[in-house]
């Protein structure tokens, strides 16, 4: 195994993990982060190839990708925030109004009805990631004063 292969394996692993995360996760922010992870897998590939070829084309490509990814992240946050403001959750399963007409859609509608009930809260909080592992400290009082 050459030096290059090791980098390529890391890049491919990041890319595949990102793809799996994107396809399986149901949280909007985590899906976006997974897509970003795929882009960084590509970045590692490019920089490794760039080192192999000893010129600067791959690196400049990486910088372009990072710039565009930043633009997309900004836009993603706007979209996610606008969705959150409407339904007060980041779960994509709440959003399933588009789809095939009645006969094909019944199962999905049932699932939506059982899984999610948009909660009306008296104050508006910013979206938060679902906790992984330990429950994060979340101070309701603080968010009220902030809003």
């Amino acid at each position: 195994m050459t030096e290059l292969d090791k980098y390529l394996i890391v890049g491919a692993a990041l890319f595949v993990l990102g793809a799996i995360g994107f396809l399986t996760r149901r949280n909007l922010i985590v899906m976006m982060l997974s897509a970003e992870m795929m882009l960084h897998g590509v970045g590692i590939n490019l920089v490794a190839f760039n080192y192999e070829h000893q010129h600067n084309q791959g690196q400049s490509f990486t910088i372009m990708i990072l710039t565009v990814a930043a633009c997309e992240a900004g836009l993603a946050l706007v979209l996610i925030l606008s969705l959150y403001k409407r339904r007060k959750t980041l779960d994509v399963d709440v959003w399933g109004e588009l789809g095939e007409a009645k006969p094909l859609c019944d199962v999905r509608l049932e699932r939506r009805a059982t899984v999610v009930e948009p909660q009306e809260e008296e104050f508006s909080v910013d979206p938060r990631l679902t906790p992984a592992g330990r429950l994060p400290q979340f101070n309701k009082q603080e968010s009220v004063t902030r809003v």
Partner: peptide, 19 residues
């Protein structure tokens, strides 16, 4: 989201073409 996903696929392909 799907468009970002497809860009990532395209870029992975590009990185190997370059390599």
């Amino acid at each position: 989201l799907l468009s970002v996903f497809s860009s990532a696929l395209l870029l992975f392909g590009f990185s190997y073409l370059y390599g």
